[in-house]
Simulated scan of single mutants.
Amino acid sequence: MTNLLPRCGDEMPLTSAELDFFQERDDEAEHELNERCSCSLQAEHTGHHTALAQCLGGTEWWLSWGKDGSAPPFARLTGGKRLLPLGCCPAVNPRDKQESCLLFESHDGAHSFFLEPEAAPVPSRKYRAMIAADLRSEMAPDEERYLLATEAFLEEPVDAVLPLLTAHEAMAVTVLLTKLAGDEWLVEGHVEELVSRLEGRMVATGVCPKKLLSATA
């Protein structure tokens, strides 16, 4: 197994002007906006730090900054002095022709497929809705009704009590949902909320979730 190279990881927050630039184009955004950007280049790279800030309508906007936080001399002034619309790197992993470099064209250091992985951008609300709609189109009617009923339940007040659920049933469901949340980003928010409700009900009935879990393990 080939050892992957470390990434730089230097962080830089977006300025208010840069945040405004992206928020004004929220309907085009392909992933959730992170106010702090982390350099995606290889550790100890030359030149300026660079991180993907947002993808708008197929155009990748990269934030570039110097070691002292200054703007790079080649930065364009469109939408913020440190923001650069850069083309994708054309390199392909020689060991896997299906894997392309996720960095920008003519970047410093190694290609992304030789670097340690970094967290994938979370899709924007619009793209999550598109993915959810696509998933629902493949659901059986009973599956879709169950999903809609679950979503409706999660919109109830936080203090709502789960009916007809024993402590052991709640514990089993909580364990399964917690595992599911770690495997599937699309339902993570719903799962975390539901797990919180389940644990709250157990505590309200005098049951400690941790003690119950250890007793049933």
Rank of each mutant, 00 (worst) to 15 (best):
M1T: 15
T2G: 02
N3Q: 14
L4I: 09
L5H: 00
P6T: 07
C8N: 01
C8R: 02
C8W: 08
E11C: 09
M12Q: 14
P13F: 13
S16G: 07
S16R: 11
S16Y: 07
A17K: 14
F22G: 08
E24K: 13
E24P: 04
E24D: 14
D26I: 15
A29H: 06
E30V: 09
L33A: 11
E35H: 15
S38C: 12
C39I: 03
S40L: 07
G47R: 09
G47E: 05
G47P: 08
G47F: 12
L56C: 13
G57Q: 04
T59P: 06
E60G: 04
L63H: 08
L63S: 02
S64Q: 11
D68F: 09
D68I: 14
D68R: 11
G69Q: 04
G69M: 11
P73F: 10
A75F: 13
R76A: 10
G80N: 06
K81I: 15
R82C: 10
L83Q: 09
P85N: 03
L86M: 04
A91E: 11
A91D: 10
V92E: 02
D96E: 03
Q98N: 14
E99P: 01
L102I: 14
S106F: 09
S106W: 09
H107I: 00
H107G: 02
D108H: 12
A110N: 00
F113Y: 11
F114E: 12
F114Y: 09
E116F: 04
E118T: 10
E118F: 12
A119M: 13
A119W: 10
P123Y: 08
Y127A: 02
M130L: 15
I131W: 15
A132V: 09
L135D: 07
S137K: 12
S137N: 10
R145Q: 00
R145M: 00
Y146L: 12
Y146A: 09
L148Q: 02
A149R: 09
A152V: 08
A152L: 10
F153K: 04
E155F: 01
D159G: 05
D159H: 07
A160V: 15
A160F: 05
P163L: 03
L164D: 12
L165G: 03
T166Y: 09
M171C: 09
M171D: 11
A172V: 09
V175P: 00
L176K: 11
L177P: 01
G182V: 03
G182H: 05
W185L: 13
G189D: 13
H190K: 07
R197W: 05
R197M: 05
L198S: 01
G200D: 09
R201P: 06
M202C: 01
A204N: 12
T205V: 15
V207R: 10
C208G: 14
P209F: 07
L212G: 11
A215M: 12
